[in-house]
Nucleic acid binder design. Structure first.
Lengths: 224, 224
DNA sequence: TTAGTGCCCGTACCACGGTACGGGGTCAAG
DNA sequence: CTTGACCCCGTACCGTGGTACGGGCACTAA
């Protein structure tokens, strides 16, 4: 039974005393009864095991909430809960982890590309990293994080704009279209970025509207 | 210049209005002056670019704090800051990302091993996942997260313990050793886990102490 | 001119996983 | 029998990245 006080348990498991109390508040482990007439609480080996379980599961990427569920599953032993349930959760987590790895790999590619194309010396104005990051679709070849909203950003390549006035005209034309929530136009880059609800207007319709104002327009890509 | 109010900017960039205000409070972007006698604030294209920069950098795994630093670097243009500084940060981040990927891969292995060895049906008592997680060094072959403290957990395989009394004796012996902060002993599993400051005692010394009490002892592995 | 959006601003709140503090009580070694 | 380390308990706070709310103006299309 190896009776221990909270500090010993913390040392053995490798967490702080406060962390154990925190887990108690979160109902991940139960607080041992205090001996009557005061004194220190005695922690059993079962609790130590439970703590090891929590730490290992955390290392495997389970959140405290998920761990609580796993533990509850076990505590309700001899119920209908069986091993397939646990296995399912582990597999779901495996899938999560795979997705995270994929995402990080994409991030890695983006970063590597940035590092590669940066001269690594000279004034900041020559640093291509800043330039790359200012584009709304950057070197990774698309957005890494997708939004769950209906809003999309459509990029148009526009020819024939020579000044701020042209910008103004194009902007006005775009903003008059159904489903357009906003846009930014630059005659320097020859681009427009349009925030739009794609269920209400297509990118081709947008391009057509711009052409109707006397400019050329091509769809560059879609953020979705 | 494409003047926009905050809502348009939010739509174009793909964030919420509140988020933009939040970035203003965090000094990531500056709040445009409000026209005298009230009215709406007008956001410039520069701010929109800055927001795109923030989003992209976030997608690449930079925290808001780091992004603020990058932006400050750029704002202090024509100072001694140059492209190599930015490149360094990108490379450091690349390294971070590599480490995260490695860690996730180890997590993945652990999870996969867990899933493999679980029968996937039958009562919970047969589920090997729980058993595996209760060990303090699990199926991944070592701790995934290392602590920065001096404390280590040493596992000893102990032979000759037949009852709780034996546990008691072994525990007492171990706790008397220099540098030992706590331990848990089980005669069922024939194991002891000892929390110890390794700079003050070696695992072999611990094993020797147990042998001196009349039991056999072997070092199982070390958490460091 | 009036209804309906949208902006302004301050403040409070969310999840997450802890950490810190303060005023006590308890325990064991010297 | 004192001293120092440890425990108890409640409560407050940390950093991260936002979200929500509510009262009051501003703007615009019908």
């Amino acid at each position: 039974m190896t009776d221990m006080t909270i500090g010993k348990v913390a040392d053995v498991v490798g967490v702080g005393v406060e962390t154990i109390r925190f887990y108690e508040r979160r109902k991940l482990i139960e607080q041992p009864p205090r001996p009557r007439e005061g004194g220190y609480r005695i922690y059993s080996d079962t609790t130590v095991k439970r703590l090891h379980f929590i730490r290992r599961a955390q290392e495997l990427g389970f959140s405290l909430r998920e761990i609580a569920e796993l533990l509850a599953l076990r505590d309700a032993e001899s119920n209908q809960a069986d091993a397939s349930d646990v296995r399912q959760r582990a597999m779901a987590k495996l899938h999560d982890v795979d997705q995270k790895i994929d995402q990080l790999r994409r991030i890695r590619q983006g970063l590597a590309a940035l590092v590669d194309c940066c001269p690594g010396q000279g004034p900041l104005q020559c640093c291509s990293i800043f330039d790359a990051l200012e584009q709304n679709a950057g070197p990774t070849g698309g957005p890494i994080i997708s939004e769950e909203t209906d809003m999309q950003t459509i990029r148009l390549s526009i020819g024939g704009m020579h000044c701020g006035g042209c910008e103004e005209i194009v902007r006005h034309v775009l903003e008059q279209q159904t489903g357009v929530k906003g846009c930014s136009v630059s005659h320097e880059s020859g681009e427009a970025r349009v925030a739009v609800d794609e269920s209400r207007i297509s990118d081709e319709q947008l391009a057509e509207a711009v052409r109707g104002a006397g400019y050329s327009a091509n769809i560059m890509n879609t953020t979705e």
